[in-house]
Design a protein around this nucleic acid. Structure first.
Lengths: 241, 241
DNA sequence: CAGTATCCTCGAGGATACTG
DNA sequence: CAGTATCCTCGAGGATACTG
């Protein structure tokens, strides 16, 4: 008398929804796909973007995604590179639906455990639009007021952008200080940078031209256009439920 | 020195995608929502439709979905009834995306552990279109050729439809015998009933008018239109990857 | 019909250290 | 840079029996 459900990872249903969830429903898998679809291609970059996911588990998930034909692993001049297949690319509309639903129904203020300044710095670093940067180097210091108060630095050059966790050996050009939560909200498109300046949650000190241009140097999260669209729709609707 | 990630169920990211997945990403949750969105409203019906999900876990998931405002639990004349809220209703497009992706990329033949004849009988029972039934009672016997060979009966009346696991005390009007896998494929819209008759995977014995009308008495899985649309698109496309 | 309570197992996944 | 190997914990969830 075998135990019927022992060792079964599937749902035991011949249905495309449950078949899809057998691969996609595993913890972290769709977040890994979100990052891959946003152009993150290297193991260490994926790991940095998902700090709560252990490297061992990331490795396992990537292997499964390869086996399932959703991504491919290629060795490109000495390095390893992951990219999405057609099956992976076709997950984009699914991720969008998650983004829309999450924006409408679960987009309250950031929680304490979501305020990882290193993660935000890492996100910002990846989304600098180098053509918009001025010539030369811009050194930005961020002082976040949430406990524990810490500072971070961004070194912006057209040829290279880097994050520093310790004071860099350069003069500071731009100081940004204020609420990390607010900067996260700006980053995800829930607020506008100028709005958080106006309401005092974020302050910026720099030369007028730097102050004016600063926010244009970053293209924020890839989800911002959809988030803003959904928030606008939400505001224009009578509150159901 | 606390262990950073201990006891954390979330993903620690201020992002609508990860926020959505914190509720929806739990095992079984989206399949429960699939069934609720298809109109299943009672605890025991949900349990019957998800035979690999234990009643204890179903109870827990329903509680979470209530707490999250995705469904509501109401006591209606002595019984309990679950239904979706606006937030739950707005998961429909997400389920559709899962259906589409699953249809395109993971819709191979049914596996052995997916061939649960009781589940199929239960699905058929729920999707009988009583107005299309003839007057009186129609007794259908199903003989599935997969091991272990078993028979099932459907008693169809306009006023009531029931499944029997033991021979009912009536004469049989219609015999259906053949591959359970094939009938599952028909049910999900991967095949047409007439096609499986033509290729011999399913046989039907009855009076000519019954044989002609039989398949019209059921409206198959709610996903059938989308499944067929997606399969048609797939066939008309050059094979990528 | 719609669950709850208890007990127990096992495997997912974290921590840590190591590698070509 | 891109992982692997080992060891260990703990909590998700199954089995079973019970309830108003």
């Amino acid at each position: 008398m075998a135990l019927k459900f022992h060792n079964m990872s599937g749902f035991g249903q011949f249905c495309p929804v449950s078949r899809a969830l057998e691969v996609l429903g595993e913890r972290w898998t769709l977040l890994i796909m979100r990052d891959l679809l946003h152009g993150v291609m290297h193991f260490n970059d994926l790991a940095r973007g998902l700090p709560h996911l252990s490297r061992g588990l990331l490795s396992k998930r990537l292997k499964t995604l390869c086996d399932e034909g959703i991504i491919v692993r290629e060795e490109v001049d000495g390095g390893v590179q992951y990219s999405v297949t057609q099956a992976g690319e076709e997950l984009r509309p699914l991720i969008y639906q998650l983004l829309r639903w999450g924006t409408r129904w679960r987009f309250e203020e950031p929680q304490e455990d979501e305020l990882d300044p290193v993660l935000l710095m890492w996100w910002m670093r990846r989304r600098v639009v180098s053509e918009r940067l001025p010539k030369g180097r811009q050194v930005v210091q961020f002082d976040f007021t949430e406990e524990p108060e810490r500072s971070f630095w961004l070194l912006l050059e057209r040829s290279d952008v880097s994050v520093c966790l310790d004071p860099p050996p350069y003069d500071i050009d731009i100081w940004v200080d204020g609420s990390l939560a607010a900067l996260f909200e700006v980053w995800m498109g829930k607020e506008e940078f100028d709005g958080t300046i106006d309401d005092g949650r974020i302050r910026i000190r720099a030369l007028p031209w730097q102050e004016r241009e600063f926010s244009s140097w970053f293209s924020r999260s890839p989800g911002v256009p959809l988030v803003k669209e959904e928030l606008a729709r939400l505001r224009s609707q009578p509150d159901l439920n």
